[in-house]
Design a protein around this nucleic acid. Structure first.
Lengths: 115, 115
DNA sequence: ACCTATTTGTCCGTATGTATG
DNA sequence: CCATACATACGGACAAATAGG
């Protein structure tokens, strides 16, 4: 799993980290049960603080994509491969919407308002 | 631009007005630079109070979709058509979600659950 | 079973930048 | 212009799990 961050990306680092790993899972580079590199290794590779990496990882855990075990590392959760692609789309949509001035509530309204 | 409100809709009237006009813009019925019917005309056509219409229009102005000019009316802002592309993205998302067995409610929960 | 060194995520505080009043 | 609040990113100390002797 080879990750890199884009300097031109204006999003917070922890979001970029989360997005990169989410896509790696969506594209099958990491499969359920696989172990991720340790947060410290990732932080070295990406040249950001460990806690910044962990913040990104935590958000993926909250989405049900990852599982944490102190002393054992971070593993890809069961079913993460199916959900990650969809969550990736959701994230992209929410981000694009925010850029254009639309709130999440507006998006929910759009979804509800579809024919 | 033909607008109508749904009696069964439980949302506040000003939200319904805003939603209806937003959709009209997204579907190309109103293009950037076009003038909207006056708030008074809209209030007559929709059978709601003028201030209710204005409240909805104001929220669209805050989103950057409309521009107000005293004495000259309300016009569709530049770039408002580009934002309508969001609806296409929403469509694609809902379709892909359905293919994977996720309902709109599931998507809404995903959006709500984002960090 | 025991110890201990290492690896791993968790938790605390702090500096900096960005809004907000 | 100043003050206040909030988010972001960082650093260091900590505790759980592991691996080797």
């Amino acid at each position: 799993m080879l990750l890199r961050l884009d300097n031109r990306d204006t999003r917070p680092l922890h979001e970029q980290v989360a997005g990169a790993i989410r896509r790696a899972i969506a594209e099958g580079e990491c499969r359920p049960g696989d172990r991720l590199p340790s947060a410290r290794d990732l932080s070295q590779a990406l040249d950001v603080n460990v806690n910044t990496v962990l913040r990104g990882l935590r958000s993926l855990r909250d989405d049900g994509l990852l599982e944490f075990r102190r002393g054992r590392g971070v593993t890809v959760a069961k079913g993460a491969d199916e959900r990650s692609g969809l969550l990736d789309q959701v994230h992209a949509l929410v981000t694009e919407a925010a850029r254009l001035g639309y709130s999440r509530t507006d998006l929910i309204e759009m979804i509800r308002g579809l024919p």
